[in-house]
Design a protein around this nucleic acid. Sequence first.
DNA 1: AACTATTTTTAGATTTGTCTAAATTTAATT
DNA 2: AATTAAATTTAGACAAATCTAAAAATAGTT
Lengths: 215, 215
Amino acid sequence: MTRSEENYLKTIFHLGSGDDASINTNAIAEQMETKPSSVTDMAKKLAEKGLVNYKKYQGISLTDAGIKTALSIVRKHRLWETFLVEKLDFAWDEVHEVAEQLEHIKSEKLIDKLDQLLKFPKYDPHGDPIPGKNGEFQEHNKDLLSELPVGAHGVCVGVKDSSSAFLQYLDKHEISIGKPIQILGKEAFDGSLHLKIGEREHTVSHQIACNIYLK
Amino acid sequence: MTRSEENYLKTIFHLGSGDDASINTNAIAEQMETKPSSVTDMAKKLAEKGLVNYKKYQGISLTDAGIKTALSIVRKHRLWETFLVEKLDFAWDEVHEVAEQLEHIKSEKLIDKLDQLLKFPKYDPHGDPIPGKNGEFQEHNKDLLSELPVGAHGVCVGVKDSSSAFLQYLDKHEISIGKPIQILGKEAFDGSLHLKIGEREHTVSHQIACNIYLK
DNA sequence: AACTATTTTTAGATTTGTCTAAATTTAATT
DNA sequence: AATTAAATTTAGACAAATCTAAAAATAGTT
Ligand SMILES: [Mn+2]
Ligand SMILES: [Mn+2]
Ligand SMILES: [Mn+2]
Ligand SMILES: [Mn+2]
């Protein structure tokens, strides 16, 4: 399994949000910052190996074997991210790029021992679930802040956007995983929310609210 | 810098034992399990980048820039090996292959933090020195067990052969870094040595004695 | 249904790193 | 010094992963 093949499987997995939905060639190309023709080439190769279902013009979906492989890469990515934050004091906005490299290291023992060192974490620094050895994982039953009514309150359990820029915005406004958040009011005009975050009050735009998960 | 380029630099560095001696094309090919023609191709590319000195038929040597790059890869390799043994309970014969992959991860912050987590180790699990951030390192002033006279005693500080097979042999006979060793006698016929290892006595072949460093 | 726009695929080229086989240079031996 | 052997380089090919440009299929719209 090459690094490129692994990256395609992971991208298809994320675009299909885990299930075996059929994904567009163009969507994969955009996500991977490559060209549609390259995606077609890889689709054929992965189909050959039994990792994706592919029929010309019909989109691409993961087979069971493909899902299993994708989950093992996601597991590695999220364990490494957790390691970087927990053991090496990385900030949560600094881990993704390094984990993109580390997720391709091939050693089952390494990842098992890492899991053990981290005490078998269930969620990564962004609140995303870490699949177990056999691919099992439990997603938080969470809601987007933007879809909750005024008065709702809960605890931040994850972010949808994991970009460095967004995470740094959250840091600046002291929003982090575990923080209690309450919706004090909503602006009808632009959907911006007035929030109580811990002990403080802040107003955030609709765009921000679309990327924070509450439980 | 590609992974392949890094591997060539590291190999040239090891074959030249650190200094800027001129290395044979064939020696590099054999060490890397590749063909001499591939080495020639890479020599040209690395020369183009100013990392090696290369003139047709004259052998290959590292430039200062090449030595610096090689040292940073060796640093990463040995820090990762130390991490695997110290933090993840790997045995010293299990770390090399994984470190071969990990040494190519690109993140200065990662390696600095790792160094810190390990408390800035000076030697790796095989007794090899770990270069610092600026490439500086101190080799143990050590001697091969095979070159010491009868009666000599010291402490094992390193191994020359880091193969899994050899390290497992050492484990079996309870030879490890830090163990006191004394030469009780030498067999004139085949050069095998009668040793006191800790509290025990063992006889080892000349071949074994050629791969253990004492101080 | 016909036309247009979008998506997707094909054909052919490129880069990187490798290989084989043949040619060339250097080293060793008569 | 001539010959043989060994080391090294060149020439040409190949697989992987990508790209561009053009063709084909599908979807959307008059
Ligand atoms: Mn990530
Ligand atoms: Mn994450
Ligand atoms: Mn090693
Ligand atoms: Mn080592």
